[in-house]
Amino acid sequence: MRGFVKDNALSLFFLVLFLLSLAGQSVAGTADYNARLLAEGGSTVSWAEYVTSSDFAVDVAENWQSEYLQFLLFILATVWLVQRGSPESKEPGKEGRESDHDQQVGRYIEPDSPSWAKAGGWRLKLYGNSLGLLMGLIFVLSWLAQSVAGRAAYNAEQLSQLQDPVSWGEYVASADFWNRTLQNWQSEFLAVLSMVVLAIYLRQRGSPESKPIGAAHKATGVEG
């Protein structure tokens, strides 16, 4: 058990943080939602009602889609684009999908390589893109969930303000949908930009996200 926890400490740490944050969001969200309902002359809802409401769903989904988009773009962009000096980047000259030798496939397969990497054909192709595909799928589904839940929350707001509800098509073309979407995207892109650029010049001793303290600023693709 202790061995399992030690071997998976990083995943478990973020899993616990995720669950605590989601729980905290649900409690704070219930209080905020009830305050708004009372101000509008309505009645309050329970925690259980709030966490199954469109308001909670859209707030969760809009953050999820932007996080998965961020990692999807980071995974795909770093195949083709480099940043000299950044530990987040490959070395200049290695842009692209790389050789079979670099990717340990075909003639260069290892005995302990994943079975789909050894299989070749469509399974190799699918497995070779599986990280981006899954991230992309979760991004698309989260964004779709945001649009559906967002429409429901928006329509409740519209009715409370004595205005007509809108169709799904009207909602995905609305300012509310794009404001929610873009305010999340801009912060994710800024965070990636900061990580890529700051890690050229700054160091964090012991972190694999940083270059070793003594590594040159121009050293690229070196992890500490």
Binding site: L37, G41, G42, S43, V45, S53, S54, D55, A152, A153, N155, A156, Q158, L159, S160, L162, D164, P165
Partner: peptide, 20 residues
């Protein structure tokens, strides 16, 4: 139409908004 705790009921000659 019902969305959340809000409803809009369209009558032949006017419209009503309700809260649950």
């Amino acid at each position: 139409e019902v969305w959340g705790d809000e409803a809009q009921v369209r009558l032949v000659r006017d419209t009503v908004f309700l809260h649950r």
